[in-house]
């Protein structure tokens, strides 16, 4: 089932009013934090709708038995964790991109969801590690020379500040590995529908009660999201003039308290409703999945690929 319009246009567009409110520096806008929260809510729903859309495409990963997919992707994330050199990791990432292509996951989506985040977040985190201040190493570029090294308690500032070979290696290694792991996790999400994924988690010997909770939580998240949106929207519609941080925080915390009061009461009602429909405390599942030949081939292939990559990595030393 291929749908041309996965997400309604209005959900993808940013509201010009909100846009202005966030642009006019959050410091001065009274309802900026509310708009921001509402944005985050909308983004979450949009991402989720998009995931369901790509999960319905016909591609390599979508057609695999979900149990096999969960196991093999877990194994592949572990493989990424075991790779210690840059070249194997680059090739590993290339293969993952091939998987995305064969699963009809749009490349720009992978770039947006994975690589832009990796560059922004991991990039900033590893940046200081380039310098010999963090880990000593062979200098590549010397930036500054002091007369002698400076010692401050447990920290020592070396006599010359340099970008080191070790630092560059570590930074690239970490970014490539995080990229590979996050891509694999994203592929799992983008090619599996949530309820299928839950059925698959059964193979990891996760208890059915836990899975039943997960399944219900997923539904409640969207319900609570809606309740929260309404509370925030109602508040924004009533806000005129300036509010100080204290007042704003008062609103957010009472919103949290109110949300709890509402949901707790609802939980009791849902429980009663479940009991009156014959719920005995033990969840039942109608899941029925069967392994196909292609699932077995994929399973073996992933083992071979994992061994090849880790083996190739160890050739480096």
């Amino acid at each position: 089932m291929v749908n041309d319009q996965p997400v309604p246009r209005w959900l993808e567009e940013k509201n010009p009013v909100d846009e202005a409110a966030t642009k006019r520096s959050r410091r001065w806008s009274t309802s900026g934090f509310i708009s921001k929260t509402l944005h985050d809510f909308a983004d979450l729903i949009r991402d989720e709708v998009f995931s369901e859309y790509t999960a319905n495409n016909v591609g390599l990963l979508q057609r695999l038995d979900p149990r096999v997919k969960v196991l093999t992707l877990l194994l592949l994330v572990g493989t990424a964790g075991l790779l210690h050199h840059i070249f194997p990791l680059i090739f590993f990432n290339l293969w993952i991109m091939g998987l995305a292509k064969l699963s009809r996951v749009p490349m720009d989506m992978l770039i947006k969801r994975v690589w832009s985040v990796v560059f922004m977040f991991t990039g900033i985190v590893v940046f200081p590690a380039l310098f010999n201040v963090v880990q000593p190493g062979d200098p590549l570029v010397v930036l500054y020379r002091f007369q002698h090294s400076i010692s401050l308690g447990i920290w020592t500032l070396p006599a010359e500040i340099a970008i080191t070979r070790q630092g560059v290696t570590t930074a690239l290694l970490l970014m490539l590995r995080v990229g590979a792991s996050v891509s694999l996790a994203a592929l799992l999400t983008l090619t599996t529908r949530w309820h299928t994924l839950l059925k698959a988690l059964g193979v990891l010997r996760i208890s059915t009660v836990f899975l039943a909770v997960l399944e219900m939580t997923y539904r409640y998240i969207f319900l609570l999201l809606q309740t929260s949106s309404e509370m925030f929207m109602a508040r924004r519609s009533r806000m005129v003039g300036h509010a100080n941080t204290r007042e704003k925080r008062g609103f957010v915390t009472s919103a949290m308290g109110q949300l709890w009061t509402k949901t707790h009461a609802m939980g009791e009602e849902v429980h009663d409703a479940m009991l009156s429909r014959g719920y005995s405390g033990a969840p039942r599942s109608l899941a029925h999945v069967q392994m196909k030949l292609s699932d077995w081939i994929w399973l073996m292939m992933v083992f071979v690929v994992a061994v090849l990559f880790v083996g190739g990595d160890r050739v480096f030393g």
């Binding site: 909770v213 998240i221 609570l224 949290m256 949300l259 949901t263 849902v270 009991l275 005995s280 405390g281």
Partner: peptide, 17 residues
């Protein structure tokens, strides 16, 4: 038998806040 609905509510609440 309350465990499933109440834990689900608690988890969703934790996720949302």
């Amino acid at each position: 038998s309350r465990i499933v609905p109440l834990m689900a509510i608690g988890a969703a609440f934790s996720f949302i806040i």
